[in-house]
């Protein structure tokens, strides 16, 4: 919220209407709790009427052995191509403000 309000000030927005947030699925966040927290935080700010839009990003990993990139829906983090457990998370841990909309 602090970041959004600052960006709004820098861009001379009088009110924020939407905050677009990228959320990685690996964060295991609960949408209704997020909305609830957002509603509490926006009170009395230029984002008082704003809505929070969550864009859920699936968990993607890159295998360090065979270099395939794959999506994991069930939190299995080993490579489905070669079975290696040596993988890096390339997407799914985000909690980023993508953009704000306002006027």
């Amino acid at each position: 919220m602090e970041i959004s309000l600052q960006v709004a000030r820098e861009n001379k927005l009088s009110r924020i209407t939407v905050i677009n947030l990228d959320v990685g699925k690996m964060q295991h966040l609960n949408e209704s709790i997020m909305q609830h927290g957002f509603d509490a935080a926006k009170q009395g700010t230029t984002a008082g009427e704003a809505s929070l839009k969550l864009n859920w990003l699936p968990v993607k990993l890159k295998c360090n052995e065979c270099h395939h990139i794959f999506t994991s829906a069930d939190m299995k983090l080993s490579c489905p191509y070669c079975g290696s457990k040596d993988t890096n998370i390339v997407q799914g841990t985000e909690l980023n403000i993508k953009s704000i909309e306002g006027e």
């Binding site: 970041i3 959004s4 927005l13 909690l95 403000i97 993508k98 909309e101």
Partner: peptide, 11 residues
């Protein structure tokens, strides 16, 4: 108006 932010909330 949409303004790109691309900032991690936990930065």
């Amino acid at each position: 108006m949409e303004i790109k932010v691309l900032k991690n909330v936990l930065d």
